[in-house]
Nucleic acid binder design. Structure first.
Lengths: 256, 256
DNA sequence: TCGGCTTGTTCCGCACAGAGGAATTCTAAA
DNA sequence: TTTAGAATTCCTCTGTGCGGAACAAGCCGA
């Protein structure tokens, strides 16, 4: 969730908040919804009717309204927010350790979405990209995640024809390269002068669902730093994985 | 999607329509969104900003907006609509064959959602319940679907404590009973005087994702009709499964 | 590199659409 | 059957949502 827009639309905000409430808290009645939103019952009813109209809600036999098929499955939005909360102190520690900005990202289709970013203290640094989407095959974390996918899984994300500027064959070449190197690296692919190293989050035997990266100006990257960076990434990934397992969390791969 | 509400809210409608567009058609820019909605660019931008604010959209590095984590996965809403379209003629044929109302439903958590209904021509009949949610363990189609789930899968939908009027132990008892009988039947469980027979849709080796039922007044149900009804349901389920496989569709179990 | 064009973003005035109070309808329990 | 609570419908009015215009950012070709 971002900052409130400069010119927000209250009616739309109420509707979207209500959709999220249904998703996260389960079925509720009109009166419940009105109280939760701080609006009149008639307003709540109108909002619910709009949500039903556009498949964001359905009404049960008991007259309560539940989340509809347009929304993500019940309870599964939270993992992204929880992932951000759990990962942020670990990202902070990673930045302190290596002195470069760090990112956490999840795979969404053929792209990665930046979930969290912690910036380093250098004046010249990679800035906050939280919330943004990048092509997965270009980003270091995206490459780390793609390298963990089967050929079928890659096929389900990339068509035969070049789309979004890349063919499946090219993605497969990048995956093979990443696997061969044992490291996911992006040198200038997403932005000239930027180098990033990626590492998946998710222990052995588990599908990696998120990835870490450290990103820096190419001027500060030297291949002799690679062992240090990869070790720091691996340690941080393991720590995040432990944190997530400790709360019996489900990882956002299940968003897909 | 239902009929347009009596007192609809245009601003909310625009926002929800835009969310569905992002979901179904992939990333787009402000100008595209404005054209698709028939609004000014500044209005489209405000709507997109609200969607981003509430996690229904994210903005990519190329400035386009894509669907956000609060929405169901890309392209997966449509299967419900397509399932309805594909199944409706088959439901019609089923109703013609057995002379009773027929439903198609999908499992959503611990409930089933009615996807499509075709009513029979008797004056006393089970009416249209399309769009409604019912407790899965009570509905015949829900029972048919639950009987196809593993113990773990049932555990993920029902907690230990009695919630929504049922405990997991009770659900497991119903599942065992359904499996023993080889038929999923609801006599008066969802409504007094109503009897329904359910049957899963999904061929051998595939997880049943939807279910059919025929539903009638108990006054018209006789256990000697059971072979006829189950045969008609099995034939119809197989036909729908073929129709779905023919278009290489994915079934709505993947909504979950 | 620069300029022109396109697209995204911000601002503000105004009129009509969204909110809410009240009336009506529905539902479940006693 | 009655009653109370909740859902739904209706309608008035004011403040909010829309869109035009200005501004900012990005892209591409010369």
């Amino acid at each position: 969730m971002r900052n409130k827009p400069t010119y927000s639309i209250e009616s739309v905000d109420h509707a979207l908040r209500l959709a999220v409430l249904l998703q996260q808290e389960g079925p509720m009645g009109v009166t419940d919804a009105a109280e939760r939103l701080g609006v009149a019952r008639s307003t709540a009813h109108r909002l619910l009717s709009m949500l039903v109209y556009r498949d964001f809600a359905v009404q049960g036999a008991d007259r309560r309204y539940a989340s509809g098929p347009a929304l993500g499955p019940l309870g599964r939005v939270e993992p992204v927010a929880r992932l951000r909360t759990i990962a942020r102190p670990r990202l902070r520690a990673l930045v302190d350790r290596v002195g470069e900005s760090a990112n956490l990202m999840v795979l969404r289709g053929a792209q990665v979405q930046m979930v969290a970013t912690v910036e380093c203290e250098h004046v010249l640094r990679v800035g906050d990209r939280e919330g943004r989407l990048l092509p997965a095959h270009l980003a270091s974390g995206g490459r780390a995640l793609l390298a963990g996918l089967s050929r079928d899984e890659i096929a389900s994300r990339y068509s035969d024809e070049a789309a979004d500027g890349v063919s499946r064959a090219e993605v497969e070449r990048i995956v093979r390269q990443t696997r061969r190197r044992g490291v996911a690296i992006n040198q200038g692919a997403t932005e000239t002068g930027l180098t990033a190293i990626g590492h998946p989050v998710g222990g052995p035997g588990r599908t990696p669902a998120a990835a870490l990266s450290v990103a820096m100006p190419t001027a500060r990257y030297d291949r002799h730093r690679l062992p240090e960076l990869t070790a720091a990434l691996a340690d941080t990934a393991a720590a995040i994985d432990r944190d997530l397992s400790g709360v019996a969390g489900r990882l956002p791969t299940e968003l897909e």
